[in-house]
Design a protein around this nucleic acid. Structure first.
Length: 110
DNA sequence: GCAATGACTGGAG
DNA sequence: CCTCCAGCCATTG
């Protein structure tokens, strides 16, 4: 697959997410200059399980901090489990302190 | 090339 | 904070 050029951008950005932090699809999309393609970011994450190294898709949630992609994991409860394992408190399928744990790739230091 | 789909987003209620 | 509607755009059939 050579057309993973688009996905690769999303993957690299997603891998830059620090542990214990989370970000939104729109943040990644906007950072890559594809603000309108926020859906494509999630679509790319769908292929994240087919690439290497693995992408921490569990740190990527929607703008509301909701674990919208948990259903796409090997186990729907795995996503929340890993987040809590990293110190991210999750409740009702959404990050509690999302606003506080929110990580923006644009404000991230190299 | 068109139609359908989707791990989204912003605005309005 | 939650729900509904419409817009966006790449991937797939």
């Amino acid at each position: 697959m050579d057309k993973e050029n688009f996905f690769d951008r999303v993957f690299e950005t997603a891998r830059r997410i620090p542990v214990g932090r989370v970000t939104s699809y729109g943040a990644i999309a906007a950072y890559l200059g594809m603000k309108g393609s926020s859906r494509m970011v999630g679509y790319a994450m769908n292929a994240s399980g087919d690439v290497f190294p693995p992408v921490p898709a569990h740190r990527v949630v929607n703008r509301n901090g909701m674990l919208t992609g948990k259903h796409h994991f090997p186990s729907p409860e795995l996503m929340q489990q890993m987040l809590e394992n990293e110190g991210v408190q999750v409740e009702n399928d959404k990050v509690v302190e999302f606003k506080k744990l929110f990580w923006d790739p644009a404000t991230a230091e190299l």
